[in-house]
Write a protein that binds this DNA or RNA. Structure first.
Length: 126
DNA sequence: GCTATGACAAGGA
DNA sequence: CTCCTTGCCATAG
């Protein structure tokens, strides 16, 4: 089941310009709740050839927490700001203000289990 | 199969 | 708010 990586790529690519999602949120949308740390791992090892908006993924505290990558937190800060997202000097941002909240149609297209869909509805769609 | 490893998360001090 | 601890889980070896 090496599909995890592919799904992560797929989900991250769905995050719209100017929006962000937490690692845990991506993990949930992938269909594997609580595998947040794994999402980060995938992005970290990703080849430069795969083009995806990795900078739109931050931790659930609303902070940039990139580590062990060829990119620095400030690289990420620049990319986010170029999309109109305000990032404080301490790498903090208002995650709830910019969080990606896909509509039901998008969620259904992911073919997730009922349990996962429930968690998504409860956590990110009030 | 088992252990170690982390771009994490949530809760307690 | 800032540490620290514990839980979790897909990979690599």
């Amino acid at each position: 089941m090496a599909k995890f990586k592919e799904k992560v790529v797929e989900i991250v690519r769905l995050i719209p310009y100017g929006k962000v999602a937490s690692y845990g949120q991506v993990a949930l949308f992938v269909g594997t709740p609580r595998a947040a740390i794994q999402v980060g791992s995938v992005l970290n090892k990703l080849e430069d050839s795969v083009q995806i908006p990795w900078w739109r993924v931050i931790n659930n505290s609303g902070r940039i927490s990139i580590k062990g990558s060829s990119y620095t937190p400030w690289d990420q800060k620049e990319r986010l700001e170029s999309e109109g997202i305000k990032v404080k000097e301490n790498l903090d941002l208002d995650i709830e203000k910019y969080r990606w909240r896909p509509n039901g149609k998008v969620i259904l297209s992911l073919k997730l289990s009922d349990g996962v869909i429930e968690k998504i509805l409860g956590k990110y769609l009030t």
